[in-house]
């Protein structure tokens, strides 16, 4: 057993603690005892239990699982594109998912959650195709510019649809990001799906390590790099579009978390996948909690407050690579 696994129990505890904290604080606060009693002996006749179970808990769980998914997606995208700054929202994958969801919502008015996820995936994947074809030939800076430009374009189309069809409120939800309004029903679909996807990724941890070494190394190690590049990219896009369907376009999280994890645990994916997911869950759940405490501020503002300085720090530290 490697030393790097020793911290795992602590981080898992951290997830549990952030779950309980996030359950406690918000528009109204509850004592830890009340939260505990909801978990141990749920009593739906009790008003407090009802609120905690039906409103607060789905939201906290949605935040945890989205943080988990978004961060892992960021990690995989960084490895696949060989770019430290890759992340679903920077690369435009979220914008693609967002547009596809709005389009689908226009065509089919009462869209089921599964349909939202599927359309999000289709949109995100189309952007992923463009992005991957750009990485083959271009510099790291070029990739990020590509993502920014594609995002701008896709958001313009989305804006167009929103303005011509009066979907303002719907749109704000996606751009501002937030875990509110989740139902247990959605979570029952998302949690197993996320688990399956991450297990699949985990089985490819070695292949991701090889991808990270670079194309030449991959060839000399005999890897079928096309196949694994695509497989892992598809899974990363799936993870991020499911997250978009649930919590909208969350910025910086997928960049921030993998970097912190890589600083502590190194680059081997068999560690980073797990730790990135757990750290992401903690950070997103706590950010969502702070957002709730501060008068329902958008969670993106909270994350950007940590994420933006961090991004600038990374750029400055690895400056030589980009300058």
């Amino acid at each position: 057993m490697d030393r790097r696994w020793y911290t795992l129990p602590i981080i898992v505890m951290g997830v549990l603690i952030s779950f309980i904290l996030a359950m406690m604080f918000g528009a109204s606060n509850y004592a830890p005892g009340e939260v505990w009693s909801v978990i141990t002996r749920l009593d739906m006749t009790d008003k407090t239990h009802q609120i905690l179970y039906e409103i607060r808990m789905p939201r906290v769980l949605a935040a945890l699982v989205s943080g988990f998914m978004i961060s892992i997606a960021g990690l995989v995208l960084q490895s696949v594109t060989h770019n430290d700054l890759s992340e679903p929202s920077i690369l435009g994958i979220n914008a693609g998912a967002n547009l596809a969801i709005i389009l689908a919502a226009l065509l089919v008015p009462a869209l089921s959650f599964v349909a939202i996820m599927v359309s999000g995936f289709v949109g995100g994947m189309l952007v992923g195709l463009v992005i991957l074809s750009v990485t083959r030939t271009r510099s790291p800076l070029h990739l990020i510019l590509a993502g920014a430009g594609i995002s701008l374009f896709l958001y313009a189309i989305t804006d167009f649809l929103v303005i011509t069809n009066d979907l303002g409120q719907y749109m704000t939800f996606f751009t501002a990001g937030g875990a509110s309004g989740q139902s247990i029903g959605n979570l029952v679909i998302v949690i197993p799906l996320a688990a399956v996807l991450v297990v699949a990724l985990y089985m490819m941890a070695k292949e991701l390590d090889v991808l990270l070494f670079g194309d030449e190394m991959a060839v000399s190690l005999g890897q079928n790099r096309g196949l694994y590049k695509w497989l892992t990219l598809v899974i990363a896009v799936m993870l991020s579009s499911i997250a978009v369907a649930m919590v909208g376009n969350v910025v910086f999280l997928g960049l921030l978390v993998p970097h912190i994890v890589k600083m502590i645990y190194g680059n081997m994916h068999k560690y980073t996948i797990i730790y990135t997911g757990l750290f992401g869950a903690i950070i997103f759940a706590l950010s969502d909690m702070f957002a709730r405490v501060f008068n329902e501020a958008p969670v993106n503002a909270v994350i950007a407050m940590i994420g933006l300085p961090f991004f600038i720090y990374i750029i400055k530290k690895r400056g030589g690579q980009y300058a």
């Binding site: 751009t175 910025v251 910086f252 993106n300 950007a304 933006l308 980009y322």
Partner: peptide, 22 residues
């Protein structure tokens, strides 16, 4: 570096814009 930080700032500031929209 200017372009990269610019892109990131655009993303971050867009998040802050929505602070007041609630």
């Amino acid at each position: 570096i200017f372009i990269l930080i610019g892109i990131a700032t655009a993303m971050g500031v867009t998040g802050f814009v929505y602070v007041f929209t609630s």
